[in-house]
Write a protein that binds this DNA or RNA. Structure first.
Lengths: 132, 132
DNA sequence: CGGTATCCAAAAGGATACTG
DNA sequence: CAGTATCCTTTTGGATACCG
């Protein structure tokens, strides 16, 4: 199996992208990444996810969860009680995806100092050029 | 090392996010993912990348490459010739990052049928509900 | 509580023209 | 060729109000 950016497959109308890229974008979306990582710890309620992630609007969290549920990564368990209680958890497929995403997140956290240092070098080099 | 979405660290003005999330977003950005995957195969010129990725504007490719270069993931080699020739390649840091990203991409490609099937189930279930 | 609907601001992204 | 600059459209995302 080759992983290549050129594995495209635009539809006839040219308005969307191949499923592969689309799913990849769901998994790597701003809030999708964080939801998957958070749910690795176990089942969480809507409000728990909201607090855990922080700075995510209800709208975006709802939207993200619906997309991930439709793709089969997240299971939604809505209890028919008042007040409502809805628990979200990873499916087996979602757990696999979350492992990959968490791997990337973990690596990033681990290497963050290297990135910060690289930026300083980059900015310094450009500042010197500008004053010449 | 804990990987958690709650590892936030907003600045005092509340206008940006912690470096960790920011770098993660660079790596998981729409075009960033594809550039990293494409450069795993080796050094490529600007126009080669553009063709390989497809449907990316010059502006976005330029922007993406600059961000990845500043973060220390991509090396830019501009030959001082006419016409200009600029080659992009992964740094060692970038190679590590690209491995993680490629792992996710590979998994997605591998499981794409599961996702498509999950969507059909989801859409069917909702269609039935709507007609009740 | 866990959403949905609507509106609006901000950011991403594309098209085009131009340059060294 | 590999950009930069500008303009414009589309998408994203937040705030608010409301509902079961």
């Amino acid at each position: 199996m080759s992983v290549s950016a050129s594995n495209v497959n635009w539809n006839t109308a040219g308005e969307a992208m191949c499923p592969y890229r689309l799913v990849l974008e769901h998994l790597t979306s701003r809030w999708g990444v964080l939801v998957l990582i958070e749910l690795r710890e176990g089942s969480k309620r809507f409000s728990e996810l909201r607090r855990a992630i922080g700075r995510v609007s209800e709208k975006m969290l709802t939207q993200t969860l619906q997309i991930l549920e439709r793709d089969g990564f997240v299971h939604r368990d809505a209890k028919p009680i008042i007040p409502p209680r809805v628990d979200y958890s990873l499916t087996e497929l979602g757990r696999e995806a979350a492992e990959q995403v968490a791997g990337l997140a973990k690596w990033t956290e681990h290497r963050i100092q290297n990135v910060i240092h690289a930026r300083e070098q980059y900015d310094k080099a450009r500042a010197e050029k500008a004053s010449s």
